[in-house]
Design a binder for these strands. Structure first.
Length: 208
DNA sequence: AAACGTTTCAACCGCCAAGAT
DNA sequence: CATCTTGGCGGTTGAAACGTT
C-alpha cells in the first residue's frame, strides 16, 4: 500500500500549452456556469489543470472581450504614461486599456518599449509636435483598434512594433503602415497548438 | 538550405493579501 | 487569533517563430 494515501489520490496536473479541447471545455463550462472558485471549477469541468492555470488561460486568452495584437500608438502612449505614473503595476495599467491584459502589456513593455529605452538616441516621442502628428496619424489609421475574441474570425493580426512607428515617423505614412499589417494564414499548426479563431469558429459551429 | 541568433509571448512560479473556517 | 484556501499580481522562463548570415 502507498504509505501516503494522499499522494495516490493526487490528480495528475497538466502543465504547458493548452490544447483546443481544454480550451473548449473551459469556455463551455464558463458559458454554462460562469466564472469563480477556480479550483473547484477546474475539477468540476474535468480539467487536469490548477485553478490558477484555468483563471490565467481564461483571463489572458479565452475571454470574449480580449483584444489581441496591434497595440495602437494611442495605447502605447497610454502605457508609457501610466507606467511613468505607476511603475510595473501592470494590472492597474491594464484596467485603463479595455480588452488588454496585464500579461500582454507587461510583455509588450519588456519586449518593445524597455528594450528601446536602452537606446536613448532613437527615442523621439518627447517632441510635442511629433506627438500631435503621431496622434493625428494614429487616429486616421485604419488599424483595427477593437478586435476582440468575440469578433475574431478568420484573420489574426501580427502586432506592429509601434515603437518603430514612433522612431520612424516619415517611414510610416498611413498607407505604409497598413502595408505592415501581416495577415497570417489561418492556423495550420499541428496537434496541440491552436489559434483563437479556431476556437471561436468551433464555438459558432457548435451553436454556442 | 541550414545553422545560428534574436524576439515574442503563453504559461508557470512564488509571493502576498483577503476572506473563510 | 491562527491556519488554510483562494485569487491576484509581478517576475521569469522556455519554446516557437522569425530574422540573419
Amino acid at each position: 500500500m502507498d504509505k501516503n494515501p494522499c499522494k495516490s489520490q493526487e490528480v495528475e496536473v497538466r502543465k504547458g500549452p493548452w490544447t483546443m479541447e481544454e480550451d473548449l471545455i473551459l469556455i463551455n463550462y464558463i458559458a454554462n456556469h460562469g466564472e469563480g472558485v477556480w479550483n473547484s471549477l477546474a475539477k468540476a469541468a474535468g480539467l487536469k489543470r490548477t485553478g490558477k492555470s484555468c483563471r490565467l488561460r481564461w483571463l489572458n486568452y479565452l475571454r470574449p472581450d480580449v483584444r489581441r495584437g496591434n497595440i495602437t500608438p494611442e495605447e502605447q502612449f497610454l502605457i508609457m504614461e501610466l507606467h511613468t505614473k505607476w511603475g510595473n503595476r501592470w494590472s492597474k495599467i491594464a484596467k485603463h486599456l479595455p480588452g488588454r491584459t496585464d500579461n500582454e502589456i507587461k510583455n509588450y513593455w519588456r519586449t518593445r518599449i524597455q528594450k528601446h529605452m536602452n537606446k536613448p538616441a532613437e527615442v523621439c516621442y518627447s517632441n510635442q509636435s511629433d506627438c500631435e502628428l503621431l496622434d493625428q496619424q494614429a487616429s486616421s489609421s485604419q488599424l483595427p483598434t477593437n478586435t476582440t475574441n468575440a469578433d475574431f474570425m478568420g484573420t489574426s493580426y501580427s502586432p506592429l512594433s509601434s515603437f518603430d512607428y514612433y522612431n520612424n515617423i516619415e517611414a510610416f505614412s498611413g498607407q505604409q503602415q497598413q502595408q505592415q499589417i501581416m495577415l497570417q494564414s489561418p492556423s495550420n499548426q499541428e496537434d496541440n497548438y491552436w489559434n483563437m479563431e479556431d476556437i471561436w469558429s468551433m464555438q459558432i459551429l457548435n451553436g454556442n
